[in-house]
Amino acid sequence: MRKLAAICMLIVLVVCLAACAPAERTARGFSMGSEYYVNYTSSADLDAEIADLLSSIEESFSVKVDGSLTARINAASKDEVISLTSEETQLLSDVFELSKMTDGAFNPAILPLVKLWGFDPPYEMNGKVPPMEESIQVAKELSSMSLFDLNTSLNSIVKSRSNAALDLGAAIKGYAANRVADFLLQEKGVSEALVYLGGTIAAVGRSYEIGVTPPRDSDESYAFRFTLEEGRTCATSGDYERFYIYNNTRYHHILDANTGYPAASGVISATVVHSNGLIADALATAVVVLGAEKGAALLEKCGATGAIVTSEKRIVTCNLTVTVKDKSYEIA
């Protein structure tokens, strides 16, 4: 009888242990105009906390949310002093620094041009026609970081033109992916996780195999793959994400503030890996604007690695080992 009781207890114990053991979980949803999913291993269900964290970041920084950092800046008039929280000042200071480091190739002040070209949501690309040259020049003048004066000691920002506007969309997903990764690792003790937010991916606790979207039509789901090391975030930008064709010319959403036109650098896709997601995201955009040669030099300078795809379907690797899947691409 005692033996039977012991066996029963053992079975109960095994079942309990199985229930408490860390399980593989996936949190899914939408945030910042993108799909997100987080694969994580944890004994606790953190789906709701991940969703809350992402929506708080969206509310703080999305240009579309009233009262957000960018909405406040964009609604302000010329010379009005906009006070910032220390977190906002820090983020803006990082973003301004990145813009400077990339010689304006990453330009968060580009919203007037983005709107003129019609690449702001809801991304209706049907029947789009490029804007007139004169309007491009007007919007270009407005799309300058020099119109903003960030004061990091006073935690404030002032703009010198009322219509100047900021949009952190090109970098905020990297920032958010990192925030989720830090939350899981540091606050929740999650041992491993993959954070995916609209193509930006953070690796927590172990390395992950990542494929890169083929920038042109392909029979494969990815053009090439690489290993994203633990603690790193990767981001990919390309001319294939939002674009329209007019008179046989592709007009895509990554605009070059120096010309006022979509970037025509010969780069059709750039994947950048860095420990800081904000930097990875911003640099991916910058490389598409700068081109392969300057882009590779920029990655080197910023301590980033990556893979740049040119319009000839050649992959320029920057301290990153890639394995080609779609054979129409080749390593340069």
Binding site: G199, Y208, I210, G211, V212, T213, S221, Y222, A235, K325
Partner: peptide
């Protein structure tokens, strides 16, 4: 809505 193809793959996510 998201429609996703799942199955065996060499990659764990696509950037």
């Amino acid at each position: 809505v998201v429609v996703k193809i799942t199955g065996k793959s060499e990659v764990e996510a696509i950037s």
